[in-house]
Computed example of a mutant assay.
Amino acid sequence: MDARCPVRTLELTVQSVEGLQLDRKPATTKNNLFVVVRAESINSYTTCMAKEDATNNNLTWNHKLDVDVPLHASSITLEVKSKTLKGVKDVGIARVAVSEFMGGFGSVPQHCLQFLSYRLRDWEGRRNGVLNFSVRVVNSPEYVTAAAGKAVSPCGFKLRGTTMGATTSSSSCGGGVVVGVPIGWNSYGSSTYNNV
């Protein structure tokens, strides 16, 4: 069966977290923290366990993930979780609008590396630290043929000169840091975000 899924691929590197608390105490490596990334699909991507950065006492992952984002997705979520003896505990979540890094009017060009810091909230809506990550769009919106691994257009025609996962360098990429604070973060269909 020829399964075609409209996707874009992100190179997302979960870097570190600042000011994270667990049970009202500063989180440590003993809390076995990891991050799960979802892009409005059944697929999820998981980092390794956090390590402590000796220079600033932040918890770090520096874990690179290739995240397939469906074309219909309006946001991705990054969930910090703690592995305990009783199971997995939710610590904080950040929801990021896809429009922040996927192209479009006034956005950063494709293939440019962006560094983002997003406020985490617990499931009751309280602030709980800031998650730092970088993201780069590594392919154009295309249909990926699962069986053949070839790029095809939405009409089913093979795209000439297309290499899946190829990146191009650009010297026109601007620098800077965006801190996004979502409004209505716990609303699945919400697409309203504020940048601070």
Rank of each mutant, 00 (worst) to 15 (best):
P70E: 01
N194M: 07
S172C: 06
Q110E: 07
S187N: 08
R8F: 04
S44R: 14
V135H: 00
S74Q: 14
P141S: 02
H72K: 14
K51P: 06
L22V: 15
A54Y: 10
H63M: 01
G87Q: 08
W123I: 08
M102L: 11
D2R: 15
A146V: 11
V98C: 15
I183Y: 01
K30D: 01
R126D: 02
T162K: 13
G175F: 09
T167V: 13
F115C: 03
M164N: 05
D122V: 04
L116K: 02
F101D: 06
E124P: 02
Q110I: 11
G184L: 06
D90P: 01
H111T: 13
R127K: 06
G175Y: 09
G125K: 03
L33A: 14
T168Q: 07
S82C: 08
E100H: 01
T163R: 09
G149Y: 03
Y193V: 12
A73H: 02
V37D: 13
K25F: 08
A27K: 13
D90T: 02
V144H: 10
N31T: 02
Y45P: 11
C5A: 14
A3Y: 15
N43V: 10
E52D: 12
G92L: 11
E124I: 07
S171L: 07
T84S: 15
S99G: 04
E79V: 11
E52P: 10
G189H: 04
L59E: 11
I42P: 03
Q110M: 13
S170G: 05
K30S: 02
E18F: 00
M1C: 05
R121N: 05
F133P: 06
D2I: 08
H72E: 11
K51S: 14
R4L: 09
G106D: 15
S171V: 08
T168D: 04
S170T: 05
T167C: 10
N58L: 03
L159G: 02
Q15V: 09
Y188P: 13
P26I: 00
T29W: 00
S117G: 04
S140G: 02
R95Y: 11
E11F: 00
V135E: 08
G87H: 09
G161T: 01
R121A: 07
L120D: 07
R95F: 06
L33S: 14
M164T: 05
L131Y: 12
S169T: 08
P6N: 14
I183P: 01
S82N: 10
V137E: 11
D2E: 07
H63C: 08
C112V: 06
V88H: 10
M49H: 01
V130F: 07
V179M: 09
A39H: 13
V178K: 15
E18I: 00
F101Y: 09
V96F: 10
V88I: 15
L78Y: 09
Q110V: 09
L59T: 12
Y188R: 06
K64I: 10
V181L: 09
K150N: 03
T163M: 06
V80E: 04
T77D: 14
F115D: 01
H72R: 13
